[in-house]
Amino acid sequence: MDIVTREINLDVPDQFEQWKTFLESLGIANFSGDEIDPLDYTIGLFDGDQLVGTGSYSGNILKYIGVSHQHSEDGVYFNKVVSNLLTNLGQHGVFHVFVFTKPMYAKSFEHVGFKELVQSDDAAFLETGDYSITDYLESLPKVNKSENNAGIVMNANPFTDGHRYLIEQASQASDNVYVFVVSTDKSLFTSSERLNLVKAGVSDLKNVMVVPGGDYLVSYATFPSYFLKAQADKVRYQTTIDALIFKDWIAKHLGINVRFLGTEPNSKTTAIYNQILEKILPPQVEVKVIKRDQNDGKVISARTVRQAIKDNQISSIKNIVPKTTYQFIVDHKDDLQERIKKGMKISGN
């Protein structure tokens, strides 16, 4: 067996076509720009000119892994691909690695050292390396598990009076409240800006702990879904994984027995998200939906705030955000507007 490993450049049409044709023969059908463009590195195993295995990564997530079954024994090609990707990531200082895959392939990844976190009907989510969900959970502040503990997950891009209202409701109804701020850096406000604005905005609420969501409260924007058949399943599958991690790991470990959710009358995605959380979390975790706070009959939304920054109408948001958020926006107006000009989207989350 003379197998050569080399990098595939997906920007070169010939190489892209060969790669795509190979994966299509393995049943992968989604090659849309939002799945392909974020790929940082792709390798191929070649038997002569023939492609017999491939894999890619984007950040610390392995993607588009496929190997020919015709001449491979005992997953030789599979191990070669994963090994090559992990070594390459290691050379870039990345040792904590994730993969989302079909449930039938979970075993293959476990065989090369991955640990399965959760599995749904559509997908399995696994991790490997020098950090694990247990380390993340150990890093969080602990409370008495038998008390009434609430959890809230928010992106808070940026923190508004609407978010504050949701946290206040939870704070009044519970002994302790964990607020998880999504760590994914795909928003106008960076993850540390968002985290710090939430902390500043609730510093008077003594039973509230604001913590980073780490890699485990993944905003649905970052879940790869190329291996699903129908695009319509995407939100459902991503949300299911998200809900299972919250229930089986986070809530279980910290003793959280109620999850507070805000409504989002203008977002279909949030509606599906809430619906799935209500289906998966109980009975271990009760779900409480809090109706959005309104200001003069208008729903308070972080999107309104981002639009106002873009339109340079900062004073218009003064009464829908906490003082701390307002001051931050005033102080960093130019920088934020520059980010929007450079292409940061203000729609979405």
Binding site: D74, V76, N79, K80, V82, S83, N84, L86, T87, G90, F95, V112, G113, G129, D130, Y131
Partner: peptide, 12 residues
């Protein structure tokens, strides 16, 4: 590596 007859060691 993860190839046959090898062992992948991660030290942290």
């Amino acid at each position: 590596t993860l190839e046959s007859s090898d062992i992948q060691i991660t030290v942290s």
